[in-house]
């Protein structure tokens, strides 16, 4: 290869390269998060909430369904009942631990489903552009026109209440915003030169989406999804509060809040506890999402 071109000589190799180990995206984000103590703390809170929901049967001091007419509405710290009891004499701590299962599921599952469905629609709309984009996005706009709470209540009510219809309702509520986020991100990435370069080397649309688009839209999607979880927890609780989500006596934070509110003048602190749980989990997801956004903000 080089015999006929000795006249031009060779190119000197650049020996200078960045020092240290490879800085992949994930590594860089992890390295940044290590010093973001606030985000780490709230990640810990979320982990704790999930673990305590998963291990509720082992952690709960009492049966969450065991009622007692004698032990109704006892205050926080009452003997054997660390967080008091509710209007039917059930242990509030146990019910909050068990209730976390439903509430966290209502928070996480709809968001995951919305990421899949809305994300797919968004990528297709953003990548195809033109009339495909217009049809998909106009349909999404119709859903956007309704306030999310109203929409969730309407869908869940139409479907007849219950956990499954609650999950479906929340999923449908989140699909439009998820779709819009991925559509925007995809449109941005699609216009960049490296996508053009991939097309210029003959890659098909499918492989461009898989190899070049998905990896680049994941960070914003991930950040947005984690902030949606907090909304979903709140909305899920709201549905249960209205009697559209989880049916009694299954413990759920929203539904607990709903039934305990009648006792607000008797045991105000105990009544506020499920609300506090909702508040802490929701806030944690929000702050973690914010921390992730900062950590993932890497200039290429």
């Amino acid at each position: 290869m080089s015999t006929d071109t000795a006249a031009i000589g060779s190119v000197p190799l650049l020996a200078k390269a960045p020092r240290g180990p490879r800085h992949s995206f994930v590594r860089t984000v992890v390295a940044r998060l290590r010093y973001d103590y606030l985000t780490l703390f709230f990640m810990g809170v979320i982990l704790l909430a999930i673990l305590s929901a998963v291990f509720a049967p082992w952690l709960a001091p009492h049966d969450p369904y065991a009622t007692s007419m004698i032990l109704r509405l006892k205050p926080v710290g009452f003997e054997g009942h660390l967080l008091g009891t509710d209007e039917l004499g059930r242990d509030v701590l146990s019910r909050i631990l068990y209730g976390g299962r439903m509430s966290l599921m209502m928070g996480i599952v709809p968001v995951l489903m919305a990421v899949l469905v809305g994300g797919l629609l968004g990528v297709v709309a953003g990548f195809a552009g033109g009339w495909v984009n217009m049809i998909i996005m106009r349909i999404m706009d119709v859903f956007y026109a309704f306030p999310s709470v109203l929409l969730a209540v309407a869908i869940s009510g139409t479907l007849g209440g219950g956990v499954v219809s609650g999950l479906l309702a929340l999923t449908l509520v989140f699909i439009p915003s998820m779709c819009r986020i991925t559509e925007t991100a995809t449109t941005q990435i699609r216009g960049l030169d490296f996508v053009e370069a991939a097309r210029a080397s003959g890659a098909s649309s499918g492989s461009i989406i898989l190899d070049h688009i998905v990896g680049n839209i994941l960070p914003p999607v991930f950040v947005y999804a984690s902030s949606l979880v907090s909304v979903s927890v709140l909305l899920g609780a709201g549905l249960s509060f209205l009697g559209l989500g989880v049916a009694p006596p299954t413990p759920d934070w929203g539904q607990m809040l709903s039934s305990l509110r009648q006792a607000i003048y008797v045991q105000p602190i105990v009544c506020a506890l499920p609300g506090l749980a909702i508040f802490i989990v929701s806030l944690s997801f929000n702050l973690v999402s914010d921390g992730l956004r900062q950590a993932m903000d890497i200039k290429a």
Binding site: S24, A203, S207, G215
Partner: peptide, 19 residues
């Protein structure tokens, strides 16, 4: 903007032949 920020450069170069 002409290199995929999520790929090591060797994979960006190898992408065309792989396609």
């Amino acid at each position: 903007s002409s290199l995929n920020p999520r790929l090591p450069v060797v994979d960006s170069i190898a992408y065309g032949p792989k396609v």
